[in-house]
Design a protein around this nucleic acid. Sequence first.
DNA 1: TATGTGACTGGTTTACAAATGCGTCACTCA
DNA 2: TGAGTGACGCATTTGTAAACCAGTCACATA
Lengths: 206, 206
Amino acid sequence: MNQPSTSSPGTRGPADHDIRDQIVAAANEHFSQYGYSKTTVSDLAKAIGFSKAYIYKFFDSKQAIGEAICSNCLAEIVAAVEQAISVDDISSTERFRRLVRTLISTGASLFFNDRKLYDVAALAASESWPSTQNYDAQIKRFVLQIVRDGRESGEFERKTPLDETVDSIHFALRPFVNPLLLQYNLDFVETAPTLTSNLILRSLMP
Amino acid sequence: MNQPSTSSPGTRGPADHDIRDQIVAAANEHFSQYGYSKTTVSDLAKAIGFSKAYIYKFFDSKQAIGEAICSNCLAEIVAAVEQAISVDDISSTERFRRLVRTLISTGASLFFNDRKLYDVAALAASESWPSTQNYDAQIKRFVLQIVRDGRESGEFERKTPLDETVDSIHFALRPFVNPLLLQYNLDFVETAPTLTSNLILRSLMP
DNA sequence: TATGTGACTGGTTTACAAATGCGTCACTCA
DNA sequence: TGAGTGACGCATTTGTAAACCAGTCACATA
């Protein structure tokens, strides 16, 4: 009924509350150290000195907490990509190359340096949690933006419907965007980015 | 030492032997009915009226039997693709479209109609059994053949090194070729084939 | 009214002992 | 000598009872 308007789905009670942040901080710590499944809600409660029941005043479920952590995690990738492509005076081609390169390198680095957190993201992807859908949508928006710019500057072809172009590129990037799939493509992390970028860029040639 | 020359790896004893065929037949039956892991080597032995130990005169291991079944399975996909693209008087573009379409439709049909056998293939892919590596190589050969033909006829561009073109296309098809990955892409089985084909074909335009 | 909790339920996980499975080898039989 | 097997070691799987966990609720305190 009176759900606070600015809160993300799965949260409860006052949207900005010190306790909520403490829970998230504890969850980040515990999830990245012991993993999502080995961390109990009681563990998080103990960590911040409250009872388990109190946690549920702020979050709908354990998964909702996972969502918060996962969102942060994926937001970092998005931020890295955004930073990499938000550079003045580079071609759309170069922008696209950076998108792919950054996407893969930050994703792989998450996998190798923060495996337990990566696993949360993979779980989220396998169950289509909102956080991953949102992440996916943001990457797609970047693709749209670059393709549109490239078309306007005459760098990319314009015959193919914009939607189709973006959809197909977005799909081609899926093995790197989706954490569940990225796992299986890590063997190709050296060669695949350039290969894929080149293929896509060739498809964009006027 | 005196390994029969024509036998596939993992096999033992005389290469063409009635018993071997019986084992393979029984395995096909059992694997597709109960699954690979729920089928014991003893089950297969009983099915053909021998003891378990005798099976090992013909196969190195249970996995070697799985290999035989998996090979057949994947060979069917390869055969379907080969038939689909071995049609006279069609453009390389059309040939490529058929490759992708057939690859996905036979793969998906295996998934939906013979799930237990599909799982064997997925297991094989996840552990990189020779059968899947071989399958992968065969698909790649088809791609090479089509691209080469298309280049010769002037239908496809020739600036990009042939190897790179083939590698990138092969990689782009991975989500459909690799049974382990196909599982995760079945939601897109309607739209992805055309989308992917179009992207790749655009990249091949002269 | 806002902060906070112990006790409860029913579904899942764990722990560990028993059973089963893979693969080998010495052996039999014709 | 080639066809075929029982019995065994070692690792994995399974069955199951106990422990645990996610999530709720009525209630306490200030």
